[in-house]
């Protein structure tokens, strides 16, 4: 903790970074802190409770974009998002310094995103056992049961778009749900339009989603929308492998791409 604070202060004081994105103590759990001064950096914490994905702030125009240099603390899955944001040209190499919490609880500074990528390759992803089991349970349902489960859950959605807002990969300035010429999706809350929304959201994440679970964690109604993303990630991995620097399943084409999902 002290190590993080002193490093963050040093970076801010020396103007090596313009802002430092980390966590501070919150009401119940740690919450994001965007520190711009050494004084604010004194509130930084980083421990196993900090499981969110702060990479969401890296594409915010008023914060990190526009050539500002940023320090950020990142969980494993947030590192994945950072790596993909670089691949999608949303980040510049050299503009972001990443502090990762390694599995032994130590703090590692990655000066470059290339180093983050290296780390991600060498390090197995933390377990997603809960999500795996949840997805399995749903997959084992009959089609009718599964339909009932998802219509039941998604009928509650009121379209606050917290899932979208919490996702680092949802950086579009105008989301498809808000495009109205033509109007692709019904923007109001109703069971079918809620399902349309979630399916579209998750499809846009195909091969891009870091599987961090931030969408589900953000839902104020506790809807398991991250399980849809988790399942999709698994399907994409099985069928198309891991995304590479040259792109993901949606942005690349190969004559060998499987088409078995087209009914």
């Amino acid at each position: 903790m002290n190590e993080l604070r002193s490093k963050a202060k040093e970076l801010l004081d020396s103007k090596a970074v313009d802002l430092f994105i980390g966590y501070e103590e919150g009401t119940r759990l740690p919450r994001p802190l965007i520190a711009t001064s050494a004084e604010e950096a004194d509130r930084l914490i980083f421990d196993e409770r900090c499981t969110g994905n702060l990479a969401v702030y890296l594409t915010r125009k008023d914060l990190a974009a526009g050539g500002r240099k940023v320090g950020i603390v990142a969980s494993y899955y947030a590192m994945r998002s950072i790596s993909r944001l670089l691949d999608e040209n949303q980040l510049r190499e050299g503009a972001v310094k990443v502090f990762g919490l390694t599995q032994d609880g130590g703090l590692t500074l990655f000066e470059a995103i290339a180093d983050v990528k290296q780390y991600l390759q060498e390090t197995p992803a933390p377990s997603r056992q809960v999500e795996d089991e949840w997805a399995k349970e749903i997959a084992e349902m009959s089609a009718a049961e599964r339909w009932k489960y998802w219509t039941g859950e998604l009928s509650k959605c009121f379209k606050c778009y917290a899932c979208r807002a919490a996702c680092p990969m949802c950086y579009c300035t105008r989301c498809i749900v808000e495009v109205n010429r033509p109007q692709w999706l019904q923007p109001w809350a109703a069971t079918m339009s809620n399902m349309e929304w979630q399916l579209n959201r998750v499809m846009h994440m195909a091969g891009r989603c870091s599987d961090c679970g931030a969408c589900g964690a953000a839902c104020p109604l506790g809807l398991p929308v991250h399980i849809i993303a988790h399942k999709m990630t698994e399907i994409v991995r099985q069928n198309f492998g891991e995304p590479t620097e040259t792109g993901n399943v949606l942005s690349t084409f190969s004559p060998n791409d499987k088409e078995n999902f087209i009914g």
Partner: peptide, 13 residues
């Protein structure tokens, strides 16, 4: 509001 994500959760609840 620096950390505000701009969702509508607060308004809707």
């Amino acid at each position: 509001s620096a950390r505000c994500l701009g969702c509508g959760a607060c308004a809707f609840v």
